[in-house]
Structure formats: C-alpha cells, structure tokens
C-alpha cells in the first residue's frame, strides 16, 4: 500500500517524484461517487461482454460463471453498460445513501 499524499514526509519523496508502483491508484474507491447501480439479470445475459467493452473505468469483469459483473468498488454508475446491452439484461437502479 502506497502512503497517502498527506502522510509522506519530504524525505520519503522519491527522486523526481516518480511513482514506482504501477496502477497503485486502484486503491482509490470511485464506487462511492455512485447514486445508481447496474443490476444484471443473468436470465437475459448472453455473456457477450459488450458491457465490459464500453465500461469507462473499466470495472466489469467475468465472474466464475462467465457472467460480466461490475465491481461496485469502482463502478460510478454511469449506465453505459445498461444503455449498450443488446439484451436489456442490465437495469440501472437508484441507490439510497
């Protein structure tokens, strides 16, 4: 785990302020930006992966059964997956906070 910006002392700044750990921003949770979430109806899903193709995060990956599922840790709830799903298998549901 990388230290947070406000935790770093000047002595801990790497030469050139280089970030040496690839992809470490993935510790940041973007899922809490969300006010609505995608819900997959597995009965309609044909596992085509179009939702994954068009996910801007990307946060949609295959689960053990081969269904494409949004990881809610990252999903911002844009709804593109639902809009683009050729089988209308994804619905966007308002979330209560």
């Amino acid at each position: 785990m990388a230290k947070k910006d406000f935790e770093l002392t000047w002595k801990e700044i790497p030469v050139g302020s280089i970030v040496h750990e690839p992809g470490n921003a993935s510790e940041y949770q973007t899922g809490d930006w969300r006010s609505q979430m995608p819900v997959l109806d597995k009965a309609k899903c044909v596992k085509c992966g179009i939702c994954y193709r068009f996910c801007p995060e990307p946060c949609i990956v295959k689960d053990d059964e081969g269904y494409y599922v949004a990881d809610l840790f990252y999903c911002k709830g844009c709804g593109i997956c639902a809009y683009e799903c050729p089988k209308d298998a994804i619905t966007i549901v308002k979330e209560e906070h």
Partner: peptide
Amino acid sequence: MPGHRACIGCGEVL
C-alpha cells in the same frame, strides 16, 4: 487501471 478520477460516463477515458 480503474480507480481513476474521470467524470461519470466519460467517453474520453473509455
């Protein structure tokens, strides 16, 4: 990788 700060539904990051 995800966890980026692009706006919701950003077409550019996609």
